[in-house]
């Protein structure tokens, strides 16, 4: 049996009376490219924050690489890389200085930090901008830098919260290649994004969270087969897109949708 890279059991998070995430139990095996989907406010970022130690769960357990994970598990933090919501950049450092800082904080020696910083800047096509302060970067460049920082220490598990948002097509293609390369070398990637085409192309497995609860979990093929069998009007043999699967599971929300705006017609 494949070893689990990420495993949660009964994971929950409440903010006062609001239940943001409830009873999430999932397993991501090592080497898997895992897509974590859900509509806005479904609990994706809250879950990723709990999985990376940025947020204390109200209930439930997390295991990373087979070991219990908490915010104080520093040995496990060395094994994970994160592009969090908001990117966690330091605006007053240059790209080079930022990567050096992050590398050193992950305990890499200076020579390794220097070498990897150079490689990453070249790979991310940021080499010509290395002396610009991060605050002067465009949004897409900041995303690339955040991703570079997340992988500088060679993590075994990578958490990516909307990594492709604001990134141009060329850079996105390059990043996808890099991520697929990491998967081939045994890394595990946990990805949240609203761009379903990317998930369909990259991920082997997906989970869908809706209103804080996990409503689907499995391989894309299994979900496709499951949805096709129950979806009214789906012709036999028709290959459903991930978007169709997603919409059929999550739906358009309760109630009669408003079709038009009164003052725009």
């Amino acid at each position: 049996m494949d070893q689990a890279a990420i495993q949660t059991h009964g994971l929950a998070r409440r903010f006062g009376d609001l239940i943001a995430v409830e009873n999430v139990t999932l397993t991501v095996t090592q080497g898997q490219f895992f897509g974590f989907l859900g509509p806005n406010g479904a609990g994706k970022s809250t879950t990723i924050k709990m999985l990376t130690g940025l947020l204390e769960p109200s209930a439930g357990t997390i295991e990373i690489l087979g070991q219990p994970f908490s915010s104080t598990a520093l040995h496990l933090k060395r094994q994970i890389g994160v592009v969090p919501e908001g990117m966690a950049l330091l605006g007053r450092l240059t790209a080079t200085e930022y990567l050096r800082f992050v590398g050193r904080m992950y305990g890499l020696d200076r020579a390794t930090v220097e070498r990897r910083t150079e490689e990453l800047l070249e790979f991310m096509q940021l080499a010509n901008e290395r002396r610009k302060m991060v605050t002067d970067f465009s949004h897409g460049m900041q995303k690339k830098l955040a991703l570079a920082a997340a992988v500088i220490h060679g993590p075994k598990v990578l958490f990516l919260d909307e990594p492709f948002e604001g990134v141009d097509a060329i850079a996105a293609g390059m990043l996808k290649t890099m991520l697929q390369g990491m998967i081939q070398h045994g890394a595990t990637i946990f990805l949240t994004t609203h761009v379903l085409e990317i998930v369909e192309r990259l991920c082997s497995h997906v989970a869908i969270i809706h209103q804080g609860r996990l409503v689907a979990n499995g391989s894309i093929e299994a979900l496709r087969a499951g949805v096709a069998s129950i979806l009214p009007g789906a012709e036999s043999g028709q290959r459903l897109t991930l978007e169709e699967i997603f919409l059929s599971i999550v739906g358009a929300g309760g109630g009669e949708p408003v079709q038009e705006l009164s003052w725009l017609t």
């Binding site: 940025l54 915010s71 496990l76 969090p84 966690a88």
Partner: peptide, 16 residues
């Protein structure tokens, strides 16, 4: 205070 969004790094790093 000056960490801004970078405060997340402080909790992500494998450093106390």
């Amino acid at each position: 205070g000056a960490e801004g969004k970078g405060i997340q790094l402080v909790f992500l790093f494998p450093v106390p």
